[in-house]
Structure formats: C-alpha cells, structure tokens
C-alpha cells in the first residue's frame, strides 16, 4: 500500500497575465468560510445522531440486563431503566443449577481457542503456498475454490451431520464435531492473507533461498516475522467466528442442551422458550459474551482494519 495522502490545504490559481499557475494559501472569503462551517456543523450533527443510533441498542441491552428479575420482571417491559438495579440475572446465569450458561460459555471458548489455532495454521499454509510457491495445479486449486464458494455452505451440513454422527461427533460430541467442521474447510478462506503475502517482495524469498534457506525456512524465518498483522487478523477472525455461529452449531448440537454454544443457547431463550421469562437473562448473557469479545476486537482493531481494507482493495 502506498503512502497515505492528505489533500494539501492550498488553493491553486491560474494567473493568466503572467501565464503561470500559482499555489496560494487559502485566502478564504467570508462566505466561503461560513459555508465551510455550515457543512462541518451538519456533518457533526449527522455523526452525533449516528453515534446515538449505533450505541443506543447496546446501552439499552446493558440497562435491561440489570433489571431485577425477582422484584420486577424477566420479560419485555415498556420501560427502559430498571426500577431497581440488581444483579439477579447475572447471579442466575452464573450460579443457578438450571442455567447452562457457564457450560455454553465454556463450550464456545474451547471451540474458539481450538479454531483460532488450527484455522490460522491452515489458512496461512494455504495462502502462503498459493501466493509464494509456484507449482502445477495452483491455478486449478484457486478456480476450484472459487466455484465451490458459490454453493451455499449450509448445503454440506446435511451430509456432514450424518457423517459426524457416525463417529459420535454430534449432540454430546458436538464440540469436537464443530471444531472439525469449522477447521476442515477453512483452507478455502485464504483470500485476504494471500493478498497480504502477495505484497511482500518476491526478492526476499529469492535472496533467502540463495543464502541457503529451504522454502520451509523462508516461510518460518523471513515471511512469518514480516506477517504479524495478517497473522493477528487471521487469529482474530478465527476466534470471533464461533461466538456468532448459529447455523452449524444449532444443527450439530441439535437437542443436546449442555452442548450448545452461547449463540444457540441464547437464541433459544428468546425465540423458542418463553422469552417473556428469559429476556433480561438473555440481555445479561449477551453482555457477558459481548464484553470480552468486543474488548479483544477493539484492542486488535488496527489489524482488523488492515485486513479488511487490504482484502477489499486487493479484491
């Protein structure tokens, strides 16, 4: 990516008499200045409004999670601020024997950690091979992935469910089963990291190979240390995805409540169970899930931005 440019704050004036083009300091007239200010003010108004819209649901979520379950209600009510602030919902989630929340949380965390590690290894392997090694069948592989990507992912789920069932990897074995599903096909998501590897000069590999490195050593000693942003991006994406997955998780763990992930568990609270009783518990659960994941994301936001912008620009 080239240098970032700022539009310089100068006006350019063509001086017809002298026949030259001059750069002049912005000597703004009063009306121009006023116009500028009006534009900026309206932008600020829009941005503030947007910020409110963007944040409000999350603020509401937090408010409602603190509503007392015992003295008020656990359902949807026609007011926002709790009459009494309490930790009822959190207490129930974390301590009540009827709550599987901690279990779900643990399930999701385990899945996320395993997926983050394994998927990162696979994605980096594939993208490195496709970006920097040249071998027969390379184009073929990339075209195949392109075509396979046009099939809806869920289509494979039906087959995989029965396959996994054969090996006891559904319901009570849903967690290893899900890890396997997420990781097995993750090689197809090589696009963004390949785009990153493509930007590292080829001469580095060549130089290292002449210096005596095998391709494996080039990968390990030269390319990996230079790829910190994309490694972090890949780990971050792999780690976050399992937290939000409903489709696969609900299918593989179908009917086995202790083996849900948080998304399936909480979804069932609001949409399948009597949500009037579980709404504030859902809110509290949502807060408990969102806080660490969001914190992690915000901490690594820089790498995320690099990843998505690089990926989109590269195509």
């Amino acid at each position: 990516m080239s240098k970032k440019h700022e539009i310089p704050e100068v006006d350019i004036v063509v001086d017809h008499e002298a026949g030259v083009i001059r750069e002049v300091k912005p000597q703004q007239t009063r009306s121009k200045k006023g116009h500028e200010r009006r534009v900026n003010t309206s932008i600020y108004v829009i941005l503030v409004l947007m910020s409110i819209i963007w944040l409000a649901p999350f603020v509401f979520l937090v408010f409602q999670s603190f509503r007392s379950y015992l003295t008020e209600s656990g359902g949807m009510e026609a007011y926002l601020l709790p009459k009494t602030w309490s930790l009822d919902n959190y207490r129930w989630l974390l301590t009540d024997p009827n709550s599987h929340f901690l279990r779900w949380y643990g399930n999701t965390l385990i899945i996320a950690i395993f997926v983050a590690v394994l998927q990162t290894i696979i994605v980096l392997s594939v993208s490195y091979a496709l970006s920097r090694l040249r071998f027969r069948g390379r184009k073929l592989i990339m075209n195949m992935v392109l075509v396979l990507g046009l099939f809806p992912g869920f289509l494979t789920m039906i087959t995989l469910y029965f396959l996994l069932k054969q090996f006891g990897l559904t319901q009570s074995g849903a967690i290893p089963g899900l890890i396997l599903i997420y990781v097995a096909s993750s090689g197809m998501g090589y696009y963004i990291s390949k785009g990153f590897f493509d930007t590292i000069p080829k001469a580095l590999d060549e130089s290292a190979r002449i210096d005596g490195a095998t391709r494996f050593q080039v990968f390990l000693k030269i390319i990996m240390p230079l790829s910190k942003p994309i490694v972090i991006y890949t780990i971050l994406m792999a780690f976050m995805a399992p937290w939000g997955d409903y489709v696969f998780a609900s299918y593989v763990a179908f009917g086995s409540e202790p083996n849900y992930n948080v998304a399936v568990g909480l979804y069932r609270w609001v949409n399948v169970n009597d949500y009037q009783g579980y709404f504030t518990r859902f809110c509290a659960g949502g807060v408990l899930v969102a806080v660490p994941v969001t914190a992690l994301f915000m901490a690594l936001q820089k790498y995320y931005v690099e990843g998505v912008t690089g990926g989109a620009v590269k195509g």
């Binding site: 060549e206 002449i210 210096d211």
Partner: peptide
C-alpha cells in the same frame, strides 16, 4: 540455488527488514 555456491545482490537490495 542454495547448493550452487553462488550469492546474489538484488536491485531492490532484498534485505530482511525484521
């Protein structure tokens, strides 16, 4: 290349930046 007993200087230097 590593077994040819050669070394090479590249146009863009190809120094390992890290």
């Amino acid at each position: 290349p590593k077994d040819r007993d050669i070394s090479m200087v590249f146009q863009n230097y190809a120094l390992y930046p890290h």
